[in-house]
Amino acid sequence: MEQSAGIFSVFLVSLLLTVRDARALRLREGTVGISIQKTYELTKYLERQLHTLTINYMDYLGPPFDNPDFDPPRLNRTEGIPSATLEVSVWRNLDDQLRLMENLRAYGLLLRCLGDVNRDLASPALRRTFQHFCTSIQGLTISISGLVTSLGYPEPPTLPPPPGARGLVPAPSDFLRKLDHFWLMRELEGWLLRTAKDFNRLKKRLGGLMARLDYRGL
C-alpha cells in the first residue's frame, strides 16, 4: 500500500510539473505572439511609409526615375544591396531562426545604404523623411532581435557586412548613382514584403502550437 502511494505521489508531482511547465509555455508563447503581431504591424506600417517615400524620392531624382514604368536591369555593381528574391521552395524550407537572422542581416546592410543616400540629399525636408524612415527600420531590427531571444534562439551577434558591402559602392557617374538608389528602394520594398510573409508564417506556426496545447488540455 505504501509503495502504491509513493508511486502515485511521484506520478502526481510529475503531472503537476507538466501542467505548470505547459502553462508557463503558453504564457511565454502568448507574449511572443503579441510581439510577433506588433512586429508584423510595424512592417506593414513601414511598407506604407516606404511607398510615399519612394514616390517623393523618385520625383527628386527626376527623369527617367520618376516614370512609374521605368524598369531598368539590376547591375552587378549593386551586389552590396541584399536581394529579397528567393525561389518559393527555398523560402518555404527556411527554419524560423534562419528567417529571423536573414532579416536582421539584410536590414543592417540596407540601413548602411540608406545612410549613404541620406548624405547625398540636398532637400532638408526629404532628408528628415529619410531619417524618420531609418529610425523606423532600426526599430524593426530591435523588434526582430528581441524575438530571436524570446523564441529561445542564441542572442544574435552583430553581423558584419561581407567584404565590399559597407554601404553603396561609389558610382562613376551621376546616372549610375541614381540607379543604385533606385534599386535600393526597390529591394527595400521586397524585403518589407518578405518580412511580413515571414512573420505571418511564424504567427501561424505559433498558433498551431497553442492549438495542440489546448487540445491536450494543458
Rank of each mutant, 00 (worst) to 15 (best):
P163M: 03
P157Q: 13
D66H: 14
I55L: 13
F133M: 05
E189R: 10
M210H: 08
R23F: 06
L202T: 08
K203I: 03
T78S: 14
C134N: 05
E102Y: 04
V32K: 06
F182Q: 03
G167K: 06
D69Y: 09
E187D: 15
M58T: 07
V148Y: 00
K204G: 00
M58S: 07
E79L: 13
Q138M: 10
S145E: 08
S35Y: 05
Q49L: 08
P170H: 02
E29A: 06
D66A: 08
R77C: 08
I142A: 04
S35K: 14
L50Y: 05
D96L: 07
N76R: 09
E79A: 14
K38P: 00
V117K: 12
Y40W: 00
S143F: 01
R28Q: 15
T39C: 10
P170Y: 01
T158N: 11
F175G: 06
S89Y: 08
E87K: 13
D21N: 15
E87M: 12
T52K: 11
A106V: 05
S4M: 09
P170M: 02
E189N: 07
L42E: 00
I81K: 04
N56K: 15
V13Q: 12
L109N: 10
L46E: 04
I36F: 01
T54L: 13
N93R: 14
I144C: 06
D71G: 00
S35Q: 15
F11P: 00
G152W: 06
R201W: 03
L213A: 11
R20M: 14
M1T: 06
T195M: 01
M185N: 11
